[in-house]
Simulated assay, not measured.
Amino acid sequence: MGSVNDRYAWQDQSACRGTDLPAFTSHRQPGRRALAAATAICGRCPVRLECGEDALTDPTFTVGIWGGYYLGGGQYSRARAESVAALRAQSAAAREHAQ
């Protein structure tokens, strides 16, 4: 069984690593410009799907932008549900394509 560090090794390759955009970690829903800037970074990220998968499976990933989607707190539960559904569809398609 891999260590916790192995599980999150993908973070070393993330396009957002080292950025200071608060949209990635904010407890507030980001504004349009901040969201656009963050999702543009996610769009070119080589580990976007790994990031999104961890956001879906790790309960500590509760706020911010993960895998190109805003996963906000309870007041944004509809947006989170839509983001989760989109990430799952992309992950399933990627796995199917890899086979």
Score class of each variant (00 low, 15 high):
Cys45Ala: 13
Thr57His: 14
Cys42Asp: 06
Thr62Tyr: 05
Arg33Met: 07
Gln29His: 01
Pro46Val: 15
Leu49Gln: 10
Ala40Asn: 06
Val63Leu: 05
Arg32Phe: 04
Thr62Cys: 08
Tyr69Asn: 02
Ala38Asp: 06
Arg48Lys: 15
Gly31Tyr: 00
Ala34Phe: 04
Ile41Gln: 09
Arg44Lys: 13
Gly43His: 12
Arg32Pro: 11
Leu71Thr: 08
Ala34Leu: 06
Glu53Asn: 15
Ala34Ile: 05
Arg32Gly: 01
Cys51Ala: 12
Asp54Asn: 15
Val47Asp: 05
Asp58His: 13
Val47Trp: 06
Gly64Lys: 03
Pro59Val: 12
Tyr69Gly: 00
Gly64Met: 04
Thr39Ile: 00
Gly73Phe: 00
Arg44Met: 04
Thr62Pro: 03
Glu50Tyr: 14
Gly73Val: 02
Gly67Met: 04
Leu35Val: 00
Pro59Asn: 11
Cys51Ser: 12
Val47Thr: 14
Leu71Phe: 04
Ile65Val: 13
Thr62His: 07
Pro46Leu: 15
Leu56Thr: 06
Ala55Ser: 14
Gly72Asn: 01
Gly52Phe: 06
Val47Phe: 11
Arg48Asn: 10
Val47Gln: 10
Asp54Thr: 14
Tyr69Leu: 10
Val63Asp: 03
Gly64Cys: 06
Gly31Ser: 06
Gly72Tyr: 00
Leu71His: 02
Asp54Pro: 02
Leu56Phe: 09
Gly31Glu: 05
Phe61Val: 10
Cys42Gly: 06
Cys51Phe: 14
Cys51Pro: 13
Pro30Leu: 04
Cys51Asn: 10
Thr39Glu: 12
Ala38Ile: 02
Cys42Val: 10
Leu49Asp: 11
Gly43Val: 07
Gly72Ile: 03
Ala37Arg: 13
Thr60Glu: 12
Glu53Pro: 09
Asp58Glu: 15
Gln29Ala: 10
Gly67Asp: 01
Leu56Ala: 06
Ile41Cys: 09
Leu56Gln: 11
Tyr70Arg: 01
Phe61Tyr: 13
Gly52His: 08
Leu35Pro: 00
Pro30Met: 04
Ala38Phe: 04
Ala40Gln: 09
Gly73Ile: 03
Trp66Asp: 08
Ile65Cys: 00
Pro30Tyr: 07
Gly31Trp: 00
Ala34Val: 05
Thr57Ser: 14
Val63Ala: 10
Ala37Thr: 11
Gly72Ser: 09
Pro46Tyr: 13
Ala55Thr: 11
Ile41Ala: 11
Tyr70Gln: 01
Ala34Lys: 08
Gly64Ser: 08
Thr57Cys: 11
Gly67Gln: 02
Gln29Val: 07
Ala36Tyr: 02
Gly67Cys: 07
Glu53Val: 15
Ala36Asn: 08
Val63Asn: 05
Ile41Phe: 05
Glu53Arg: 15
Ala38Cys: 05
Gly72Pro: 00
Ala55Met: 11
Arg32His: 09
Leu35Ser: 01
Gln29Asp: 02
Ile65Ala: 01
Asp58Arg: 05
Pro46Trp: 14
Glu50Ala: 15
Trp66Pro: 04
Gln29Pro: 07
Leu71Gly: 03
Gly67Lys: 03
Gly31Asp: 13
Asp58Val: 11
Ala37Ser: 14
Ala55Asn: 12
Gly68Asp: 05
Ala40Cys: 06
